[in-house]
Computed example of a mutant assay.
Amino acid sequence: MDKIKTLDKLYLFYEKYFNNIVVLVVFIGSNIFYWLNHFNIGSGENITTFLAERILAPRESILVTVATVFLGIYFTVFSILGTIKAESTLGTIPKKNFFKLITFIKNAFLFAFSYLFYTIFYPWLAEQLVSYPKQLLNLFLIILFLYMFLSALKVGLALFVVFRKDLSNLHESIEKQKLETKKQREIFLRLENFLNEKDEIKDRNRAIIMNEIAKRKNPK
């Protein structure tokens, strides 16, 4: 029980603060390294420039494809959420958690779209800007990249938490559904047989009554 409570607290911390803490650390750290490099304190390449121009920019086509895939996944999940049934797993989760999941997906969609949109103008802006404005340009590219992947991870974890119980009991649920279906078929079959027997009894009684009426009309 204590272990479960600890995991729940860790997940709540991750859910509320983790993404923003990572981005804040990157923002502060990048600026510190930039100004140290700017005033020739220490040595080495500006870490923001290295990440943006050496790591992200050369892989722009791959990352744009990934962002497009994310957008497609989020759109599909939104479509599924719009057609859920009351008996489905998503239909049984608490209202608060359901709208929290919606918020996660919406934010992830916006970050993926923002990264996709930002990369359109990044190459041109990178040629026009210098000094600290270019540092901010590179920094925002890194931040959008981080938010895009961290938001995707948050959505994945949220969906895992929602479906965790069902996934662990998947085979049991399938067997239970099969038994329920078999039981319903047996009930319908018995009901059908019962109704057929009733109809046969009615037909026999009707035939007997008709015979009695015919005998009375034509006595020997």
Score class of each variant (00 low, 15 high):
residue 8 D to A: 10
residue 9 K to W: 05
residue 10 L to T: 00
residue 10 L to K: 10
residue 13 F to Y: 09
residue 14 Y to D: 03
residue 14 Y to S: 13
residue 16 K to T: 08
residue 18 F to M: 12
residue 24 L to P: 00
residue 28 I to M: 07
residue 31 N to C: 01
residue 32 I to W: 05
residue 36 L to S: 04
residue 37 N to F: 09
residue 38 H to Y: 15
residue 38 H to L: 03
residue 41 I to E: 10
residue 51 L to K: 01
residue 51 L to W: 04
residue 53 E to N: 14
residue 55 I to Q: 05
residue 56 L to Q: 12
residue 60 E to C: 05
residue 65 T to M: 07
residue 67 A to P: 01
residue 70 F to P: 03
residue 77 V to C: 00
residue 79 S to E: 11
residue 79 S to R: 10
residue 79 S to Q: 03
residue 80 I to Y: 12
residue 89 T to Q: 08
residue 93 I to T: 08
residue 95 K to D: 13
residue 96 K to L: 10
residue 100 K to D: 15
residue 114 S to Q: 05
residue 118 Y to C: 01
residue 120 I to K: 11
residue 121 F to G: 15
residue 123 P to T: 08
residue 124 W to F: 14
residue 128 Q to M: 12
residue 131 S to I: 01
residue 135 Q to K: 13
residue 135 Q to C: 00
residue 140 F to P: 02
residue 140 F to K: 01
residue 142 I to A: 09
residue 145 F to P: 09
residue 151 S to T: 05
residue 156 G to K: 07
residue 162 V to F: 07
residue 166 D to A: 08
residue 169 N to I: 01
residue 170 L to P: 01
residue 171 H to C: 05
residue 172 E to D: 13
residue 175 E to T: 10
residue 178 K to W: 07
residue 187 I to C: 02
residue 200 E to T: 14
residue 202 K to F: 11
residue 209 I to E: 14
residue 212 E to C: 05
residue 215 K to F: 04
